[in-house]
């Protein structure tokens, strides 16, 4: 019973993904002005040849700060799970 329900949910989710994806054409992305701005101005404004790095560390620096904080917290949590207990 539960297994059949799981299979139905899987089929439903895959179908939803298919409906979403079938409306998008591959190779012709939406020409957003933000991406055009990044490509045309990242070299002059941040001095980096690599546009992805310029986006990551300059335009969206807060994003990278949160990412580094998540990694730090994950390391902290893993350490906390395996801490040495007193009573053992």
């Amino acid at each position: 019973m539960r297994r059949n329900l799981s299979i139905i949910i899987v089929i439903l989710m895959v179908g939803m993904l298919g409906v979403i994806v079938s409306g998008i054409s591959f190779g012709e992305p939406v020409d957003h002005p933000m991406d055009r701005y990044f490509i045309e101005n990242s070299q002059l404004e941040s001095g980096a040849n690599n546009v992805v790095t310029a986006v990551l560390f300059d335009y969206r620096g807060f994003d990278t700060l949160g990412e580094a904080a998540v990694l730090f917290t994950a390391a902290l949590g893993t350490m906390l799970v395996f801490r040495r207990r007193r009573e053992e």
Partner: peptide
Amino acid sequence: MVLPTVQAMTLTNIVIGFATTALLLAFAMM
């Protein structure tokens, strides 16, 4: 050139996925 912003978002996603996977594996070991 291909769009740069989605690639930056993908990098963010990879790192956060790594962090959550490490934490979940630690819980599985416990």
